[in-house]
Amino acid sequence: MGKEELRNELLKALSDAVVDMDEDKTGELAQKVLDEGLNAYDAVMNGLAAGMEIVGDLYDKHEYFVPELLLCADALYAGLDILKPHIKPEDIGESAKGQVVIGTVQGDVHDIGKNIIKMMFEVAGFTVHDLGRDVPLEKFVEEQMRTDSDIVALSAMMTTTMMGMKKVVQMIKEKNPDVAIMLGGAPVTKDVSELFGADGYADSAGNAVQEAIKMISRLREMQK
């Protein structure tokens, strides 16, 4: 088998293993990528992340639900943990310098959507500063300034905690208008996102996968 053929086969198998929620298989395949001397970053982006994108689609089509999404994420991590130490900075390019602050706002202890987004940023080579859940609003501002992060991603599962996001967006934009802000969570709509002055939004965990990919691409365009 030629190298290109092997690459294609392994990428497809990695993607399938993520979609099939098969942690053992993604681990084995990730190791095979390394053993065969293939590019680890290519395997992450075009294997694991490609699989996760299909998972996002399946979620939107009501074929997969949150339990499946979480198990697919576990499978992705099983591969990512093996491949990540072998990713070369030159493969990622400028975005290797990308940093993101992420957390669920105060009053909200739901963090599933936040964790999915976090994973997608990790996949894309970002350094993620995860503040966890039930995070006081000022903490987002402090952490963005401390780390000089490019993106701040805020999550709120409940309408009632969503208003906290508006304050964070204002506080961060006042200090640094160039920071891209992403809002996520069930109550977040396009209107809310625009009203709050954010740069991107995701209303479901499945949609978050796509939105994170879009935001990362936009950021890369800006860095070019």
Binding site: Q106, V109, T160, G164
Partner: peptide, 14 residues
């Protein structure tokens, strides 16, 4: 209970 918060926040389970 978020006693010190200025926001209206319902209690959560820590």
């Amino acid at each position: 209970l978020y006693h010190d918060s200025e926001e209206i926040l319902y209690p959560t389970v820590p």
